[in-house]
Amino acid sequence: MDLLAKVEELSGENLYACYQCGKCSAGCPMVDQMDLLPNQVILYVIRNDESVVEAKTPWICAQCYQCGTRCPRNVDITKIMEALRLIKLRKNIDYLKIGKVKKNLPQIAVVSATRKYTG
């Protein structure tokens, strides 16, 4: 299955609905830490450019739902970010060694990290 089909299947989103207005990236609170803007991520996936799977963007995404809430085309980019993370995690490639994280973080942070960064 190619990348686009996989992302569509995991996210349930229609990436072609995007008309690249950039509202998603404009509202994203983590955008200054990203190597690809959220709207660029959509372009990469549509072009089946596998390098997007190696990008930092999906991992720095905080699942805040701002992008999807504001998208005039109803594309839920939050779900697309999750799909990209899962493509790696489901191959048993963890983003983070959970045993190596800083001690004494609140439970809520550690649990979230296991969900988003380990498969």
């Binding site: 983590m30 991992w59 983003y95 942070a109 550690v110 979230s112 990290a113």
Partner: peptide, 19 residues
């Protein structure tokens, strides 16, 4: 209603310090 950086505090603490 802007995100604080959430669980990035585990993986990328600096990003959350910036937030």
């Amino acid at each position: 209603n802007e995100c604080c950086g959430a669980y990035n505090v585990v993986s990328d603490r600096e990003a959350v310090v910036e937030r």
